[in-house]
């Protein structure tokens, strides 16, 4: 198995091959990170709102 790939690269794709899988893989990968960033951002907003409310409450009591 070891020597089966990438020892001698060729330029140009084989006839019937398409980039679809490659594009799909990269898209899905970066999309997954994007979704994670959006989740983080949403969580951040909720967290800051909660924090502000609790801090205001603490300040009020003092």
């Amino acid at each position: 198995m070891a020597a089966m790939w990438n020892t001698a690269p060729q330029s140009g794709a084989k006839g019937e091959e398409t980039m679809i899988s490659v594009v799909a893989a990269f898209t899905v990968a970066w999309l997954a990170l994007g979704v994670y960033v959006l989740t983080l951002a949403a969580r951040q907003r909720g967290l800051e709102r909660e924090l502000k409310a609790v801090e205001a409450e603490a300040a009020e009591e003092k």
């Binding site: 990438n6 690269p9 060729q10 084989k14 091959e17 490659v22 893989a25 990269f26």
Partner: peptide, 21 residues
């Protein structure tokens, strides 16, 4: 990964997924 790297001999174009995988 898509344009510059050479295409691999046996796995062909699909080997490019390696660069993100």
């Amino acid at each position: 990964a898509w344009l510059i790297a050479p295409t691999e001999r046996t796995m062909g174009i699909y080997q490019r997924i390696f660069y993100v995988h």
